[in-house]
Design a protein around this nucleic acid. Structure first.
Lengths: 246, 246
DNA sequence: TTAAATTGTGTAAAATTTACACATTACTAA
DNA sequence: TTAGTAATGTGTAAATTTTACACAATTTAA
């Protein structure tokens, strides 16, 4: 695959195609998907981790990953793994980045594709053993197995950017939520304080919130109004939206 | 790798790790990189394509791709391929997305990682055969080999978004450029018309342009001032920049 | 019934974005 | 040499958006 003499057109062509024999064996690598699943609970942003059982990484936490099957679309893989781990299949799931350093996995060359998912913890009972699967505060995540800290960091940055471009942080909340809960979520994700009045103004202006006509229950103070997110309206507006201004 | 009985903890653990035997052979897939190289010339945004020589895709154009080597970091792969094709190694190169549909490549299962690069056509003589490698107007790109149109579309959208967040479109221009050239570039990338005065104002406010003290030459009208981009200043500002507001 | 906690609301000032016109410069052709 | 052509370079007023900020209303708990 060295650089070719210019006058040799035939040879040149060969370097630009992937021929079947090359795809066969020696050039293959293992491919995995790692899911970074964010949740929100107790006013904290959480991430779902599992305890690694590889000797080298004993007692470390890691992301939820698995190998992509040879006959399986990459996206399908991500949904399969998410479903296997959480039992859910109706979630927002998005590819973030692919990590392909040679030495990133001790079991051999494994290139991994990171996917992010947002779920609301309250509404989904995780169908796994509690001592193996655990929600961690994003603030206290450190020292994960493999290069999972790096992957997590990339996904967290992705999430922070994402919720500023699109109001999808909403999928982290229960179906009905108060504006306080929504603001808490944004403050937790972005790790900043926001002005309450301006935050409301901004969200109402977006016009994606539907007044449920109900108030919060069992709060030791004046209850807040409950809203839900209008996904249909959001999808429609998204189309007529070029993104950022210029 | 099927779903496991909940009460079998030992078995359960196995599904959460990637063990060495699994990495060995049957689970591997071929991995490639495809480079989407944008350039700017004659006031048009261009993309570098090569004529495919696979029978099935005869006479179609395709992106510059190659297989990732088993002992090669993914990013290194992208730079290697870019260098092989263009002779350049000092370029901005960024991973955009990974495409992993089972049937996307006729030679077998090949998952491909798309990388984008921006070069200025004037300054780099491509060291390849002219009839095989060609700059295409992005407007007229269609009917590429494999799923390359889909990959190209994703990269073009990525570029449009990218230049609105960071003024990196500049790397598509010669070292010295006039504001008119800069504006033409942005208009070509975003496919919109911009107000000249406001465009200037915006760019001068960013404070990344250095006045070269020279004017354009050989233009049939009043020559414009020439500027260069201050990469160092840009890098410094980038750090103290959270991105988009909230 | 009073205190504590939190919701809900509006406005004025500041900052940013937009729309827009004319004098200047250099080249070209008569 | 001069007039026409084609583009550069510049400022401001209006509109819009963002920011900062305070007080009355509602509910629970004591």
């Amino acid at each position: 695959m060295a650089l070719i003499a210019k006058d040799n057109a035939q040879k040149n062509i060969k370097t630009f195609k992937i021929i079947q024999s090359e795809v066969q064996s020696i050039n293959r690598v293992a491919l995995s998907v790692d899911c970074v699943i964010f949740g929100f609970d107790e006013n904290k942003l959480k991430v779902l981790l599992i305890r690694s059982d590889l000797k080298k990484y004993q007692s470390k936490w890691s992301l939820l990953g698995d190998l992509v099957k040879p006959e399986e679309d990459l996206d399908d893989s991500a949904y399969r793994i998410l479903k296997q781990r959480t039992g859910l299949n109706d979630l927002y799931l998005e590819q973030v980045h692919t990590f392909g350093e040679v030495e990133r996995h001790p079991g051999g060359r494994v290139v991994t594709v990171a996917y992010c998912s947002l779920i609301n913890i309250q509404h989904h009972r995780l169908k796994t053993l509690e001592n193996e699967l655990h929600w961690h505060d994003v603030e206290s995540v450190s020292d994960l197995a493999f290069d999972h800290k790096k992957i997590f960091d990339a996904c967290y940055l992705w999430l922070q950017k994402r919720v500023q471009e699109h109001p999808l942080g909403l999928s982290l909340l229960p179906n009905k939520f108060s504006l306080r809960e929504l603001q808490n979520l944004y403050e937790a994700i972005l790790n900043i304080k926001l002005d309450r009045r301006n935050f409301r103004k901004k969200f109402f202006a977006m016009d994606f919130l539907v007044d449920m006509g109900e108030d919060e229950q069992n709060v030791p103070h004046r209850p807040g109004r409950l809203y839900k997110f209008d996904y249909d309206k959001y999808e429609k507006k998204k189309k007529t939206w070029s993104g950022i201004d210029f």
